[in-house]
């Protein structure tokens, strides 16, 4: 094992030795890849909603609208992060079946999953999940509808800012729209492995 490591490093050193000088690391203003013109002066929650729509996601700002949306789609059974349920329960009617644990042997039973997002990115219409905030990776992925609860104060304006704030969580996932493919004849189909409907509930 270590001999392979040594062999690779020795070849790398050999390959780089003849270079008189190595390419310098460019210093650049991270602003250059920010769509500042679009962001400047905007309310971030509004911009997020607008940009989410563009990538096929839905942004909602009140729980009643969420419940109505789920009911309309006949998505009546799902998983909810136990930390969120006390706040949400009063809005959900008796026609809903909600579980606060996710049983992976019954993965198809969950039509929706509601979990917390650690943030969002307005510029790209992205919600951010991580291990510390998202109660179950599967609960945010396997159901047809994923609802991410986004706190207003956690919305980043742009991708560059969100990268700077990655922190030390070992699993950070940006979701920009529902799961999608265009593999078959270039035709866009949503809901390949992950959610076909991606919702942010901005609170």
């Amino acid at each position: 094992m270590s001999t392979e490591r040594e062999a690779i490093f020795s070849r790398i050193r050999g390959a780089l030795a003849p270079l008189h000088e190595r390419a310098p690391l460019p210093q650049y203003d991270a602003e250059i890849s920010v769509m500042r013109g679009m962001i400047a002066g905007r309310d971030l929650a509004e911009l997020l909603a607008e940009r989410m729509k563009r990538v096929g996601s839905i942004a909602l700002t009140d729980v009643a609208a969420l419940v109505a949306h789920l009911r309309e789609g006949k998505w009546l059974r799902g998983y909810v992060d136990p930390a969120l349920w006390p706040g949400l329960a009063p809005h959900f009617g008796a026609d809903f079946t909600v579980e606060q644990t996710f049983d992976r042997t019954r993965v198809d039973d969950y039509a929706f999953g509601i979990t917390r997002a650690s943030g969002a990115i307005a510029e790209s219409g992205t919600i951010i999940l991580n291990d510390a905030t998202t109660s179950r990776r599967l609960g945010s992925l396997a159901p047809w509808v994923h609802v991410a609860v986004v706190e207003r104060a956690t919305i980043f304006s742009d991708v560059t800012q969100a990268v700077a704030a990655l922190g030390d969580d070992r699993n950070v996932v940006w979701c920009t729209g529902p799961s999608k493919t265009a593999d078959v004849e270039g035709i866009l189909i949503e809901g390949v492995h992950g959610p076909g409907v991606q919702i942010a509930l901005i609170v």
């Binding site: 990538v55 996710f102 992976r104 510029e123 790209s124 219409g125 992205t126 291990d131 510390a132 998202t134 179950r136 990776r137 599967l138 991708v159 990655l166 030390d168 969580d169 070992r170 699993n171 950070v172 996932v173 940006w174 979701c175 920009t176 729209g177 529902p178 799961s179 999608k180 265009a182 992950g194």
Partner: peptide, 24 residues
């Protein structure tokens, strides 16, 4: 690649799952 601002899933993986996370 695909004329998207970002691909849908962008994962930043720094190691195995954390102890509190049940999945992964």
């Amino acid at each position: 690649g695909t004329a998207q601002d970002l691909t849908v899933y962008t994962e930043f993986i720094g190691g195995p799952k954390s102890a509190a996370q049940p999945d992964g």
